[in-house]
């Protein structure tokens, strides 16, 4: 089995407005199996466009102008994501790559129980399962993310923000994908809940062996959770290295600027001029 999960080559996305915006420029990236890759950069640097683009989730006016994305499936097949037709793409998504969206706390349906929303995943992607098998799978998922099976009939508003986020992670985990894309998954949560969720993501990653693309502008957080970090600016990856090397020995000037621009919890003071 190949050590690489996803090969992105010369990937470019243009927003075809007037004037056209080159959101992602010739990005080449190899994602390894089981790693957490952090995508960091300021608003508008193209990190979200890149992560959505490789799954072809972008809508007009976004146009993928160039590049290839190859998914190296655990079965040994190489899947050229750009060559999939609409139906194949629909099956590919969530099955191989799932997402935890930005503001996921509000992306659950408020008028359906979380159990039935999780069952929907199996109904669509695993039509062969019987009703009781689906239910069993959902119960297992709720236990895995430590929400608990007794929450099966709860509505989203009956859960705390952290619990809702766990349900979203359960949903992303449902089909045992090989890659999870997480777009600011903990931004709206307070630090204690955030830490629990991060621990859980890390533990699940080891248990199930999936890779994670973790998008956030919170660099301190990213430095702790990621194996490798890609720093993006103006649609380009300006630096890609292990989290430790990004922290201890950044090469690019922009990386250095970013690193010096956040207040440090215990490090040197002096950034806020008081």
């Amino acid at each position: 089995m190949n050590d690489t999960l996803l090969s992105i080559r010369d990937f470019s996305v243009v927003y075809d407005v007037d004037p056209a915006v080159q959101a992602v420029r010739n990005v080449t990236l190899e994602l390894r199996r089981g790693e957490i890759l952090g995508l960091a950069g300021e608003s508008g640097c193209g990190k979200t466009t890149l992560a959505y683009g490789v799954q072809r989730l972008l809508k007009a006016p976004a146009v993928i102008t160039n590049g290839s994305v190859v998914f190296h499936d655990a079965s040994g097949d190489d899947i050229d994501v750009n060559a999939l037709d609409a139906d194949e793409m629909r099956r590919f998504r969530w099955d191989k790559i799932s997402m935890v969206f930005q503001g996921a706390m509000n992306s659950l349906n408020p008028v359906a129980t979380i159990g039935s929303q999780l069952e929907d995943v199996f109904e669509v992607h695993r039509p062969g399962l019987t009703r009781s098998e689906r239910r069993e799978a959902v119960v297992e998922l709720l236990e895995i993310v430590k929400v608990g099976a007794q929450r099966y009939r709860s509505f989203p508003h009956e859960l705390s923000g952290g619990m809702r986020q766990r349900v979203m992670i359960a949903m992303a985990l449902a089909l045992r994908p090989q890659l999870m894309v997480m777009d600011e998954p903990t931004t709206a949560l307070d630090v204690l809940v955030q830490r629990e969720i991060l621990k859980q993501i890390s533990a699940l990653r080891h248990e199930f062996g999936f890779s994670v693309i973790f998008i956030t502008h919170d660099l301190p957080l990213l430095l702790e959770i990621s194996d490798r970090i890609a720093i993006m600016r103006n649609g380009e990856i300006v630096e890609l290295d292990t989290a430790e090397r990004i922290w201890t020995d950044p090469q690019d000037d922009y990386t250095k600027t970013l690193l010096s621009s956040f207040p440090r919890l215990t490090g040197e003071k002096g950034m806020v001029l008081r």
């Binding site: 630090v191 830490r195 890390s202 301190p220 430095l223 702790e224 922290w247 919890l265 215990t266 490090g267």
Partner: peptide, 18 residues
């Protein structure tokens, strides 16, 4: 609270992996 807050200085000083 302090232990839960991201702190790269301490994280890499302890040379711990993820």
């Amino acid at each position: 609270l302090r232990a839960a807050s991201p702190d790269p200085d301490a994280h890499f000083a302890s040379a711990s992996g993820i």
